[in-house]
Structures are given as structure tokens and as C-alpha cells.
């Protein structure tokens, strides 16, 4: 056996040396340019035809606050309906039953294929199709009384959301390893129990970032319900500027509120992600 040769010469010891900081000139210059541009835009708005006193006065007006409450209530209820429908439809799409599969695919096709604002208008105007609705012989009512702006907005937003959420949920379920289904079956679980106990909890980790995205979209999509008289934030802001003609000021008020809500939602999503990351390496460390 040959002896192990000694370490070769010509490769000096670097252990005492530090890596020098680089000046990053380009970063400084570009940051300064961006600050200049922003300052110019801010100056333009400050000197423009905006009465900022109206913005600060209406920012906490009672009607605006009611609007934001209605917006949040609608966003949460419609999202809950959307997630419920999304899970059910995703499970149907992944079932071996061709009838369930086709019904689920048809639902997604219909509600993803037409504009949301059109769906809202259809729900709101349902009375034009069915003057009275109910179960024959048991219960009936005039459709105009039942289909309030609230209910029309909830059905329109929630059912539309379900079509999108079902695809998110399906992707999440498909991301779970097939071995997990098999292990669940091997301990005697049926398909639905395996989905509920084993697959869905693991899929949640994958679907929360896109669902957070969808919820933020939903908060803003509620503004479409202004066209069917649901008193959400934008609708109430519009009502004010119809009276006082301060259009831009009130749109800025609404915009600031939407921004605030979305800014609060982002860290909430991170908390939720952490909750469902149980057992993954990132936490195990």
C-alpha cells in the first residue's frame, strides 16, 4: 500500500482573513432615484385638486365604518361558503364515481366561465325568473323578499369562490403522497375518513398560501356587490360622493381601508401557515 502523501505546497492558509464589504454603488443610486420619483409624485398629489381634509374627516365616518364591517362580514361568510363548496367539489372530482366527477367538473366550468359581476346581477334579479320560490306545498315566498342584496351577494360571491377554491383544494390533495392513502387504507380507513384524517390536514399546508391569496381577492371582490345595493365599503363611499361630489377623496378613503385590511390579513396568514406546518422539518429544528 502506498503511504498517504503530505499536503501539497502553494495553497496558503486563509483562516485569518475577512471577506471585504462591497460598496454596492448601484443600490445607493437606484434607491436615491426612487425616493426622488416618489417625492415628486407625493408633491403632485399634495398640490393637486384633492381636499385632504375631506379624506381625514370621512376616514372614520360612521357610514364608512359600517361599510368596512359589512365588507368584512361578507368576505368571511362568502369565503367560508367557498371553502366548504371547494372541499366538497374537490372530493367529488377525485372520487371514482363518474356521476360525481361530472357534476363537479360542470360546476367549476359554469361558475368559473362567467364573470362574477354577471353572476351577482343574476342572483339579485332572480325574481324576474321565479316570482315566487319555495318547496311546493310546504313553503313559499316572494323572491324579491328572499333575495336581499345580502343573500344575493353571499350566494354570488360564495358559489363563484367555490369554483376556484375547489381547484386549489384538488391541487392540495394531489400533492399528498399516494403512500399516505395506502397507509390509511392499510389501517382499515375508508376513502372519506382517510381524506378527513390524513390527506386534508396535510393538504392544508399546501393550500393556505393560495387560499390567503383568494381571501384577499375576496375582500376586494365584495366591492362588486355595490352594483346590487349591498352596503359595503365602496357602495357607502359612492353614496357619500353622490351627495357631496368629493369623488377622489372618498375613493382614497375606501382605498386606504382596503389597504389596511389586507395589511392585517398578511401576518394572520403566516400564523395559520405555522399552525398547519406541524411535523415538517422547518418546525422540527
Amino acid at each position: 500500500m502506498k503511504p498517504v502523501p503530505a499536503l501539497a505546497e502553494g495553497f496558503p492558509d486563509l483562516s485569518g482573513m475577512r471577506v471585504a464589504r462591497e460598496p454596492h454603488w448601484f443600490r445607493w443610486i437606484s434607491a436615491a432615484l426612487i425616493v426622488l420619483v416618489l417625492a415628486a409624485i407625493a408633491r403632485a398629489f399634495a398640490n393637486g385638486q384633492i381636499e385632504w381634509s375631506y379624506v381625514s374627516r370621512f376616514l372614520t365616518a360612521k357610514v364608512i365604518l359600517e361599510g368596512i364591517v359589512n365588507t368584512m362580514v361578507m368576505a368571511m361568510l362568502a369565503m367560508a361558503l367557498g371553502i366548504f363548496l371547494g372541499v366538497v367539489v374537490a372530493v367529488m372530482r377525485l372520487s371514482p364515481n363518474p356521476v360525481l366527477k361530472t357534476v363537479a367538473a360542470g360546476y367549476t366550468w359554469l361558475f368559473r366561465g362567467t364573470p362574477l359581476i354577471l353572476q351577482l346581477l343574476l342572483w339579485f334579479n332572480l325574481a324576474l325568473v321565479f316570482p315566487t320560490i319555495g318547496i311546493p306545498g310546504l313553503w313559499s315566498a316572494r323572491a324579491v323578499d328572499v333575495m336581499t342584496p345580502f343573500l344575493a351577494a353571499l350566494l354570488g360571491l360564495g358559489i363563484n369562490q367555490g369554483a376556484y377554491t375547489s381547484e386549489v383544494m384538488r391541487a392540495g390533495m394531489l400533492s399528498v403522497d399516494i403512500g399516505q392513502y395506502e397507509a390509511a387504507q392499510a389501517i382499515g380507513m375508508g376513502r372519506l375518513r382517510a381524506l378527513r384524517r390524513i390527506v386534508l390536514p396535510q393538504a392544508m399546508r399546501v393550500v393556505i398560501p393560495p387560499l390567503g391569496n383568494e381571501f384577499i381577492g375576496m375582500v376586494k371582490a365584495t366591492s362588486l356587490a355595490s352594483v346590487i345595493q349591498y352596503p359595503e365599503l365602496l357602495h357607502n363611499a359612492e353614496n357619500i360622493y353622490y351627495a357631496n361630489s368629493r369623488v377622489i377623496e372618498l375613493l382614497i378613503v375606501a382605498g386606504l381601508w382596503y389597504l389596511l385590511v389586507v395589511s392585517i390579513l398578511t401576518p394572520l396568514q403566516m400564523l395559520l401557515e405555522r399552525r398547519f406546518a406541524r411535523g415538517t422539518l422547518r418546525l422540527a429544528r
Binding site: A186, G188, Q202, R278
Partner: peptide
């Protein structure tokens, strides 16, 4: 299937459950 126990090549433990919960899942749930 309850009469047979299966051990897989790639373990297939439930990653969102602790070792103990992996073991108790079948007896309690099924």
C-alpha cells in the same frame, strides 16, 4: 384489512402526527 398489518418500503408515517398519534390513529378512529 384489519386482519393484516402492512409495513411499507418508504414507511408512510403520517407526517402531521407524532409517533404516538401515528400508532393510536387506527385503534381509536377505525
Amino acid at each position: 384489512r384489519l386482519k393484516t398489518g402492512m409495513v411499507f418500503q418508504r414507511f408512510n408515517l403520517f407526517p402531521h402526527k407524532t409517533a404516538l398519534e401515528n400508532i393510536t390513529e387506527g385503534p381509536t378512529q377505525v
